[in-house]
């Protein structure tokens, strides 16, 4: 068996890989924002008094959480055109990621809201806070503080999940790596460096989220 390592193909094509990484960053950052909005709307529906809205929200959450992302991607890219909805690979990837993240984030937020007991309102009221102040200091911030770690790790997961979008020909980092692999046959070297790039990107996000955590949720509440 013969295998000689040769990382030169990686350095020769580092520009392409960096372009791919930039696309991955854009895709994941946008889907994080979109997922948050979708999650808030879903949470409203999930806790709504209108039964059909609840059913739709539950159905959406359960289907997304119990089927592979790869399958969801296929559905958005190959399935929706038969209903007349046509998206480019990158858009389809973004929509699939946002809907995937939205379902998980909605469940996480539901847990956070549930963790705030009724007593909180009453306590805030007893302290003579105005309703808006109660919401801000006694409800929203503690709830966000409770869900923040779970929510942000879900966001990191979104960044990592975006690698699967290569299956519908989106032009992110994994797709670039696979393309380079298919013309240079240096699989291990290319995937090794691509993996390192993902690791760096996820550490950057982690550190950014930690920084935000310290600014937004540190005691005492300002």
């Amino acid at each position: 068996m013969t295998y000689e390592f040769d990382f030169s193909v990686v350095w020769d094509n580092i520009g392409l890989l960096l372009d791919g990484a930039l696309m991955t960053l854009q895709l994941s950052a946008l889907s994080m924002v979109a997922a948050t909005i979708i999650a808030v709307v879903t949470l409203q529906a999930r806790t709504s008094r209108i039964a059909p809205a609840r059913w739709i929200a539950i159905g959406y959450i359960e289907v997304i959480r119990n089927t592979p992302f790869l399958l969801q991607l296929y559905f958005f890219f190959f399935g929706l055109p038969s209903l007349g909805i046509r998206m480019s690979p990158n858009t389809a990837a973004l929509v699939a990621l946002a809907l995937n993240g939205g379902a998980y984030a909605a469940e996480i937020m539901r847990g956070g809201v549930a963790s705030i007991g009724k007593g909180q309102w009453e306590a805030g009221f007893a302290l003579g806070l105005k309703p808006l102040q109660i919401f801000r200091y006694v409800i929203f911030t503690p709830a966000m503080r409770a869900i923040y770690p779970a929510l942000t790790s879900q966001f990191i997961l979104l960044l990592l999940t975006s690698s699967i979008a290569s299956a519908i020909s989106a032009s992110e980092l994994t797709a670039v790596a696979q393309r380079l692999d298919s013309v240079t046959f240096r699989s291990f070297e290319i995937y090794f460096i691509a993996t390192a790039m993902y690791l760096i990107m996820s550490s950057i996000f982690t550190r950014l989220f930690n920084l935000l955590d310290r600014i937004l949720f540190s005691y005492p509440i300002r």
Partner: peptide, 11 residues
């Protein structure tokens, strides 16, 4: 298609 050469080269 993309995995065949690595599969061969890695034995």
């Amino acid at each position: 298609v993309t995995s065949r050469i690595p599969t061969l080269l890695t034995g």
